[in-house]
């Protein structure tokens, strides 16, 4: 539909939208995060949800204590190898459509603990991450920015067609294998269908 015509109609109090726009508009403004924190980043996440930064302005004030009622998992903090299976299990228990924000240096790469034998080098090795936020810890503004980025992403999702959203494609998995505790490391150390090491070009 022509943008100008739509704008003119809106001035007359007539709103013409597609079902996709309405659906995405509703979803992006009521994202319920899982109340779940792993380390110091969680403190910043809590600060973002409280009065000063007030994540409620973006429709995300309802932190759900159960994964069954949550749409968004904010992985806030260091994921140790002992904790990683539980994080993946929580993600599997969330209903579709679901999103993940990896918050902070640890959650995206292992951060300052990267060389430790006990730290997972990024949660994106096991579950698909929608938005990565660097920082140690990221300020609440950074989390809000990540949140707005996610809203933009939700808004642009297609419900039909070949490039439709992951949750609309029956062939895309909604659950991912939970890593097992091995004798020396997690088994497998990463999920190759989710994560492949990026090729670093060196001159």
């Amino acid at each position: 539909m022509d943008e100008g015509l739509r704008s003119e109609l809106q001035k007359q109090g007539i709103f013409v939208v597609t079902l996709e726009q309405l659906y995405n508009w509703g979803r992006k403004n009521s994202v319920w995060p899982l109340s779940f924190g792993l380390a110091c980043c969680a403190i910043e996440m809590i600060a973002a949800s409280m009065a000063r930064w007030d994540l409620a302005r973006f429709g995300a004030e309802v932190f759900r204590p159960s994964p069954r009622q949550a749409d968004l998992m904010i992985v806030a903090g260091t994921v140790t190898k002992k904790m990683a299976p539980q994080v993946v299990r929580l993600y599997n228990q969330m209903p579709e459509p679901k999103y993940v924000i990896a918050m902070g240096a640890c959650a995206i790469s292992g951060g300052p603990f990267k060389q430790g034998y006990n730290v997972l080098k990024g949660i994106d090795r096991y579950i698909p991450v929608d938005v990565h936020i660097p920082g140690c810890p990221p300020r609440p503004e950074a989390l809000i920015h990540a949140f707005m980025t996610l809203q933009k992403k939700i808004d642009e999702q297609k419900l039909t067609g070949p490039d439709r959203a992951r949750h609309c494609d029956p062939n895309e998995p909604s659950e991912f294998p939970v890593p097992q505790f091995g004798e020396h490391d997690l088994v497998p150390p990463s999920n190759p269908s989710v994560w492949k090491p990026a090729v670093v070009a060196r001159g």
Partner: peptide, 11 residues
């Protein structure tokens, strides 16, 4: 106490 029970090494 820190690593999982199945872990065999001593880091």
């Amino acid at each position: 106490i820190l690593m999982w029970d199945e872990f065999k090494d001593f880091p």
